[in-house]
């Protein structure tokens, strides 16, 4: 069964939460993951164009090192609108990146983000949006601009052709809340990554969203990422869609 991890990371100069490229590839091989869609985001402050371009340079280098394994998202700070749009276009068309990664610099419902979304729509690539509905006040205070499912749903309604992926259902706080919000927003996918493996999370996601809107991911929680889908009481066909078929369809849509 094809397995495409739609949400992974490697370490970079400005991002120390990831893992070294070689370790990640080895871990993926142990677990039978065919491809890893990675990014190197900057998770604090307001990264400048020079900084996010450095991240993307590192990402492209990794893609070249493991061309059959590593796919790269282009990380930008949408506050730098012109530079972000140009960076996305260049990285997708020239370097073969497969999508856009947005972190928590702005809520995705903020109009400042719209030019980036327009460019992603034009290039037919997905946007992997860091997201969470953090019910713990201390956690929420740490990320005041984190997008939640309502922000994503609103953005998706403005751009019905956009392919937006709500990141880490299993790492973004109250996942039941997110699923309820996103139930009727057809152009939003949800990635299942994160360390949370609450029994029933996948079954409920399938029930509310349908298996064709779910994308397997790990966000570096490797056994958790695979185990929650293997353990879910859903059909083999649904597992196949989630593990890889849906993401393959998204990747095939890309302009080249």
């Amino acid at each position: 069964m094809l397995k495409i991890d739609c949400h992974s990371h490697i370490s970079g100069r400005f991002f120390k939460w990831g893992v070294e490229l070689k370790s990640l590839v080895e871990a993926a091989d142990k677990l039978g993951i065919d491809k890893l869609c990675c990014s190197i985001p900057i998770v604090e402050g307001m990264p400048t164009p020079s900084e996010f371009k450095t991240c993307n340079n590192e990402m492209v280098k990794a893609m070249k090192e493991y061309p059959d394994k590593i796919l790269g998202y282009c990380f930008v700070n949408p506050g730098y609108q012109q530079e972000s749009v140009e960076e996305i276009e260049r990285r997708v068309l020239e370097d073969g990146m497969i999508g856009v990664k947005l972190y928590n610099q702005y809520r995705c419902s903020d109009p400042v983000v719209y030019p980036v979304v327009r460019k992603a729509v034009e290039l037919k690539v997905p946007i992997l949006q860091h997201a969470g509905y953090l019910t713990d006040p201390a956690e929420a205070a740490r990320q005041p601009n984190i997008s939640n499912a309502r922000d994503i749903s609103y953005l998706a309604s403005l751009f019905p052709e956009a392919m937006i992926i709500e990141a880490h259902l299993g790492g973004g706080g109250d996942w039941e809340w997110a699923l309820k919000v996103l139930k009727n927003t057809r152009n939003v996918y949800v990635d299942t990554s994160g360390s949370v493996i609450d029994c029933g999370i996948i079954e409920k996601a399938v029930k509310l969203l349908g298996a064709d809107r779910l994308l397997f991911g790990t966000d570096l929680s490797m056994e958790e990422g695979i185990g929650k889908i293997l353990g879910a009481e859903i059909s083999e066909r649904e597992k196949s869609l989630i593990f890889g078929e849906n993401m393959r369809r998204i990747l095939e849509a890309r302009s080249r």
Binding site: K30, L31, I197, D198, C199, E223, E224, I226, G227, K228, L230, G231, A232
Partner: peptide, 16 residues
């Protein structure tokens, strides 16, 4: 941690 958590993740951990 079953049934708060899926059992299969732990099985995978043991296998690795």
């Amino acid at each position: 941690g079953f049934p708060l958590k899926y059992l299969q993740s732990a099985i995978l951990k043991a296998k690795l």
